[in-house]
Design a protein around this nucleic acid. Structure first.
Length: 930
RNA sequence: GCCCUGGUGGUGGAAUUGGUAGACACGCGGGACUUAAAAUCCCGUGAGCAGCAAUGUUCGUGCGGGUUCAAGUCCCGCCUGGGGCACCA
């Protein structure tokens, strides 16, 4: 019997599914291991060969860990709320739920063909009400929590209210939007509306007027991580800054813990680094400057308090609230003009314009706190309203932006740190001695910083402070296809929907677009109001419900917890299940989620830990970023002015236009199937071809795999032609998991041949045949070398070298004509994580169809078969003698001298070391084990 | 500008972490089996030089230095591809 992969794969996929071989138990004597893939957004295009890369890797680990005796949780689901389904709905009127369901079915079909060992009984879909009722529940808990800086954790808001009742703000140190001070009496006197306003300042999910990234084309706001270079990540539309009342998440409360937590988890360094950058901790001081002839104070944040004597002007962001109050009459109109001009710029303009310096003097002066000298106050758009205090003390000598501003407007540049040439450029380095700085003069920068903070605090004009770049995350989206935010408004005051009314399901709407007056799509729903007793009711019978929905990252911020206990109707995850599975041991996915999903998940996880529902501090213990599989596009060259195509080698001298050709019409030798190409599109029917010999050759280019470039390779096609096992092994063989690499179907024959050889090892003349004879030393050495390698490789996620090791071993055993059961049994088990179908088939032949191979213990290498033959120490010196003789035959005199010198040094080195093992090749010592 | 990463044959990539660089695979060349094809198997394949040949030998891991008996691997200085952050005070 030949290797019939399609029959084998179908048979075992069915067996695994019918017998629920991979169903994980929530309690077990075995140690647990939780392996997770980043769940996909089910797009209409289906999977291409790049998508399963990480899934295959995680599947190998899952199967390996099962063999190793772990109780493995390996689930899969769908991140099924999202923009594409909604945009399709806008175009066609089809409900996104239908589109989503269809896409999921297709994804499932494609994944099933690859033979993953998922426990599908735990599948989750973020757009499923059974799931998002818990997303809404978590939202309510965030709404009902505040962050206590004293205990450094989140706590129920009721606790804060009690404090306000008894002590006002006295003695409470909470994370908040703006500092508030009031007495219990004042609090008692606040009405309902005012009280809620105050509480919004503390809630972890809150509504606030804030500057948001508004994308007019998409008609929605976007979070910072959804904006790249001033354009929307999805669609690439321009994004402008706009002030809006918005739901936000107070992630900034967790900035320090999110930063510190990185040290305790095993993630790739670049990923940690981007999170560190994103959180952007900087230490310095906040200082306030009095404004001359006014009661106002300008508060600034600086990382360089040591340079305070170098301040020669101050700059406020144009939006800064003090601007209007301190601007003098003479400058009022110029300042107004400047504010309008700055406000018109989009985020993108502003970034593109980094080199253009602009600003406007306000006419006001601040007073230097130590020298008492007046300092002119300017406004300028290089100062951001949203960072620090929206104001800076400018030290042009030691900050390049301040320097450029000063030069542009002819402001003085007093030097306070020695070491630079400030006439040419600012000296930003944090080294050198302070000069012209009274009590700081003579100190090193580092010491000057702490001394300056000390003096600032002593004088009561500021204090040491740590700032974070991390902003609160905008949480509301003006979209339809997302989780409704479970809040309604009573006299404009947000109230939470009762837990018994969850899930708050998406209402039917007549269209998925915003309303004429710019309200989100949910405002179209006829039945979208709330009655605290009855739940959702028609508009006339209740209070208006919130019309924005949650962002895409809401569901994905906690889905990994739901897998632990996906059918629990009483809780988002049961205590027992959580206590057993704890957190994800291995998470595999793309690095593009570094500052989105992976940061938000950590935030929610820590929040839930604070509230006592989770026992771990981090969601994902180890994380691996799989690289992207790129497409290898095929490009035909068309003559510039007519419909004639010219083979690539001949095209160099001609003016041509590149045309992307469907890669499926090109063979492994880059030869184009001309007939198919003509039939491909109507405009190509009469195309002419200039051939090289009798062939038309295309050029190749590596690009992202995309429909647009006709370079998409479908895993289904590979499975049909070569089988899932070949696909799996080839994807691993392609290169290191973490690296991006181009797909090249031509190379797949190597892996396919390997599997056929593997199959033939167990068969002779087409019939299954193994012998019970004792294996030879050579056979065992080959096997155990492989066992050792595979065990090590899987632990280190070095799957590509494992595949090579399999090829070597099977080639060796083939050459030895090994048919021994003693060797072939462990070999099948070794292969099982990589190519599970063929391994199961061989195992069932070996064991006459008993249990699944996944229950068999993984082989462990026996070192005694791995001992190498070595030269002993004295032999090495015989080698040396031979070397000397040979030298004289063909070398020049100088070369001989050089080599003998090296050799003598080596010999000298070895004296007294009494090496255990010395390998010598042609007189040259190549390996020494001392 | 700051911070992470990588740079090895025609190609994808190996290299026990300082010990025979180029494993394994693709591609290419040659051969066996076959009427032929497919399939399968075997041999060769970094560059240069010497030789009919077996073989020998020099050079060779982005560039230039250094440490070491020994460097793709460690150190210093550059060049360069990819990624993150960025008027963040």
């Amino acid at each position: 019997m030949e290797y019939n992969f399609s029959a084998i794969e179908k048979k075992w996929q069915q067996y695994w599914s019918e017998n629920q071989v991979f169903k994980a138990q929530n309690n077990s004597e075995k140690p647990k291991y939780y392996v997770l893939d980043m769940f996909p957004y089910p797009s209409g295009a289906g999977l291409h060969v790049g998508h399963p890369l990480g899934y295959i890797a995680s599947d190998i680990v899952s199967r390996f860990k099962r063999h190793k005796g772990f109780n493995v949780l390996h689930p899969m689901g769908y991140d099924s709320f999202g923009l594409p389904a909604e945009q399709y709905a806008i175009q066609t009127g089809q409900h996104p739920a239908i589109t989503t369901k269809e896409n999921i079915a297709r994804y499932r079909q494609q994944m099933d063909k690859i033979g993953f060992s998922y426990d599908w009984s735990r599948e989750v879909r973020t757009s499923n009400p059974d799931f998002y009722r818990w997303t809404q529940w978590i939202f309510l808990e965030l709404f009902n929590s505040w962050y206590d800086k004293e205990t450094n954790k989140a706590a129920p808001i009721a606790e804060l209210i009690t404090r306000f009742d008894n002590h006002g703000t006295e003695g409470t140190n909470a994370v908040c939007g703006e500092e508030m001070i009031f007495t219990p009496e004042e609090w008692a006197g606040y009405n309902e509306v005012r009280r809620e306003e105050v509480l919004q300042n503390y809630r972890l999910a809150y509504r606030a007027e804030s500057t948001v990234n508004w994308c007019p084309e998409l008609g929605t706001v976007l979070a910072n991580d959804e904006v790249k270079d001033g354009r929307s990540e999805r669609g690439g539309y321009p994004v402008v800054q706009k002030k809006m009342m918005q739901w936000s998440m107070r992630i900034s409360a967790y900035a320090q813990r999110l930063l510190e937590g990185l040290d305790a988890i095993d993630w790739p360094e670049p990923l940690k680094e981007s999170q560190r950058n994103w959180i952007g901790r900087s230490e310095g001081a906040s200082v306030h400057f009095e404004v001359k002839d006014s009661k106002e104070k300008i508060e600034v944040f600086t990382t360089r308090p040591d340079t305070i004597f170098g301040v020669s002007f101050m700059v406020l962001a144009p939006e800064h609230e003090l601007v209007d109050r301190i601007t003098t009459e003479v400058y009022r109109s110029s300042v107004e003009d400047y504010k309008v001009q700055a406000g018109r710029k989009t985020e993108r303009d502003r970034m593109a314009d980094v080199k253009t310096i602009s600003g406007q003097f306000t006419g006001a002066y601040a007073i230097h706190p130590f020298t008492g000298k007046p300092i002119p106050v300017w406004i300028g758009d290089y100062v951001l309203a949203s960072y620090g205090t929206g104001a800076v003390m400018s030290v042009p000598a030691h900050d390049s932006r301040d320097w450029a501003f000063a030069k542009h407007f002819g402001l003085p540049v007093p030097e306070v740190v020695a070491g630079g040439n400030i006439a040419m450029e600012s000296y930003d380095a944090k080294e050198g001695k302070l000069i012209n700085s009274e009590f700081l003069t003579g100190l090193e920068v580092k010491d000057a910083i702490s001394k300056a903070i000390e003096e600032i605090e002593k004088k009561g004009i500021g204090k040491g402070k740590t700032n974070f770049r991390l902003r609160d995350a905008i949480f509301g989206r003006q979209r339809y296809w997302g989780e409704p935010i479970p809040v309604y408004y009573e006299n404009g005051v947000p109230q939470t929907v009762k837990e018994e009314h969850l899930p708050l399901e998406l209402p039917a709407v007549d269209a998925y677009l915003p309303t004429e007056d710019g309200e989100p799509p949910l405002a179209r729903a006829a039945t979208w109001a709330y009655h605290p007793e009855k739940g959702v009711v028609p508009a006339s019978e209740g209070f208006p419900l919130e019309t924005t929905t949650m962002p895409g990252w809401a569901g994905s911020s906690w889905y990994y917890l739901r897998y632990m206990d996906s059918e629990n109707e009483k809780d988002f995850v049961g205590e027992g299940a959580e206590g057993y599975w704890k957190n994800v041991d291995l998470y595999i996915g793309g690095s593009e989620h570094a500052t989105g999903h992976l940061l938000y998940s950590r935030f929610w996880h820590k929040f839930m830990f604070d509230r006592g529902w989770l026992s771990t501090r981090e969601p994902f213990q180890k994380l691996i970023n799989q690289g992207m599989i790129l497409g290898t596009s095929a490009i035909a060259h068309r003559m510039k002015d007519n419909n004639t195509f010219i083979s690539v080698a001949l095209s160099k001298s001609e003016p041509t236009v590149p045309v992307h050709v469907d890669v499926n019409m090109v063979n492994a030798s880059d030869e184009l199937d001309v007939e198919r190409f003509r039939e491909w599109r109507d405009d190509l029917a009469d195309a002419q071809f200039i051939l090289e010999g009798d062939k038309f050759i295309v050029s190749r280019e590596v690009e992202k795999m995309s429909k647009r470039w006709y370079n998409v390779v479908n895993p289904d096609d590979i499975c049909t032609e070569y089988g899932a096992d070949t696909l799996r092994m080839y994807e691993m063989f392609l290169g290191p998991l973490e690296q991006s690499k181009p797909w090249n179907t031509a190379g797949i024959s190597g892996v396919y041949n390997f599997l056929k050889k593997m199959w033939r090892l167990y068969h002779s003349a087409g019939v299954f045949h193994v012998s019970d004879d004792q294996a030879t030393k050579e056979e065992l050495k080959s096997l155990h070398t492989l066992i050792k390698k595979v065990n090590e490789d899987i632990e280190q996620f070095s799957f590509n070298t494992s595949v090579s090791a399999f090829m070597i071993c099977v080639n060796e055993l083939g050459a030895l004509k090994c048919t021994k059961r003693e060797v072939l049994e462990p070999l099948a088990v070794l292969l099982s994580p990589f190519a599970p179908h063929i391994a199961e088939e061989l195992w069932s032949l070996l064991k006459k169809g008993t249990t699944s191979i996944s229950e068999v213990p993984f082989p462990v290498a026996n070192e005694k078969y791995l001992v190498e033959d070595t030269f002993e120490y004295p032999v090495a010196f015989n080698g040396k003698m031979r070397f000397k003789e040979e030298l004289s035959l063909s070398m020049g005199k100088e070369d001989i001298e050089k080599h003998i010198l090296t050799l003598e040094k080596t010999v000298k080195y070895l004296e007294g070391k009494s090496p255990r093992k010395v390998i010598v090749v042609h007189g040259k010592i190549v390996n020494v084990v001392v």
